[in-house]
Amino acid sequence: MTTVQGEADERFAGLIGAFRSNLADGQELGGSLCVLVDGRPAVDVWGGWSDAARTAPWGRDTLTNVWSLSKTVSSLALLLLIDRGLVDPDAPVATYWPEFAAAGKQDVLVRHVMTHSSGVSGWDQPVTPDDILAVDAATDRLAAQAPWWPAGAASGYHLLDYGHLVHGIVRAVTGLSLGAFVADELAGPLGADFWLGLPAAEDARVSPVVPPPPSRLDLSALPPESPAVRTFAGPVLGAEITWTRAWRAAGVGGAGGQGNARSVARLNALVSGRGVVDGKRMLSAETVDRVFAAPIEGTDLVLGLPLRWGLGWGLRHELSTAYIPEGRVAFWGGWGGSLVTADVDRGVTFAYVMNRMSDGILASERGRTYLRAVYDAL
């Protein structure tokens, strides 16, 4: 099925052509693309199949697990609390969540969590996939354990626990779970079909991800106590876990969001629109500017790449993410290749969500191709 459905401005013909070509040769199974220019849809398309057996087409409202694109939505939740004066990014996490001060974490700042430099990038062993799906209990475990490196000294990608840490802060400040807060304060008001905690009644719309090829990541040369080994092993997840009701219901804020390109773009348009979507201001421009202020930069202790982290989003780094346009562009990718960019300078939001996963944590070649096509059109 190479038919691409939806609507797109004529100038994005190259983007649509690339998507159609990848559907035709099987690189894509199914997926969706969205481009917002000044908050208005310039591209909203989808195509391919929702299932590996190719029996159900990917539809307008198909959802799938978007992996770490979820982190951008979790970050938006904290930005809202920062904007409302309820959270100070330069205050200790324990100011709001006293239990987090345990085991030497009293000086970990909210900023350190949002820039992946808190020293808490995973769970102490032993920990199982089922353990992290008990979100409250897994969050409490993070509060009790010691950091793996000094806060602020370096970033170390918070692979699976980023959303749990954000949940701990949101829960302490509002009394709500992260998933409930996102539903009430972000997805609901914006009309974004994005879920951190998917009701069973929505399961029929979910496209199960197709797991990626075996990982080429080799950690054997690293000591067992390194943050990379401890993060990737705590716990080891297969993509198949996302097929379960337990995963979809849990609302894992670092990796378990269910959405599509349209909903991911609409949420991240709060950044590219400097707090305004559809004429409705939800964040101050000054709060959005904080995303780009005082980034942390260096070799990430978990991913082993030179990275640049803003407040909740990745920022372009010439050595590792040069495919991201220059300027104030907040971005992140999901395991398997999904990608979202929020370009403040140009007022452009791009999102790509799919079900056939590629190898790698950051953007796939498909995602990079689509992003280049967007900026070629602009």
Rank of each mutant, 00 (worst) to 15 (best):
L176V: 06
W58I: 05
G253N: 00
A249E: 12
F12G: 08
G122N: 01
P214T: 11
A228P: 01
R274N: 13
S272F: 01
M357L: 15
G48Y: 03
W148P: 08
G254I: 02
F181M: 01
G31T: 10
N260P: 02
A151L: 05
R372E: 15
G59P: 02
V210A: 11
A42K: 07
Y162Q: 03
P295R: 00
T64P: 05
V271M: 08
E99I: 01
V302F: 01
Y96V: 00
L142V: 11
L301I: 00
A138R: 02
Q106K: 13
L15M: 10
G257V: 09
D140A: 15
Q125T: 06
S50W: 01
A269V: 05
K280N: 11
L78V: 13
L319K: 14
W243C: 07
Y162T: 04
R356P: 03
Y352K: 06
G304Y: 10
L178Y: 05
V210K: 06
V264P: 04
A153M: 04
I132K: 03
F331H: 14
A146I: 11
E7Q: 15
I16P: 02
S226H: 08
A250L: 05
R216V: 14
D25F: 11
G334S: 09
V210R: 04
L311G: 02
A187E: 00
A101N: 09
V135M: 05
E225G: 14
A53C: 01
D136I: 02
R262L: 14
V93I: 05
V348E: 08
I324V: 15
A138E: 07
N260T: 02
D83V: 06
P199K: 10
A363F: 07
A351F: 04
V302E: 01
D345T: 04
R274W: 07
G333R: 09
D193Y: 02
A322H: 12
D124Y: 06
A342C: 13
G367D: 13
S177K: 06
R290D: 09
G156M: 00
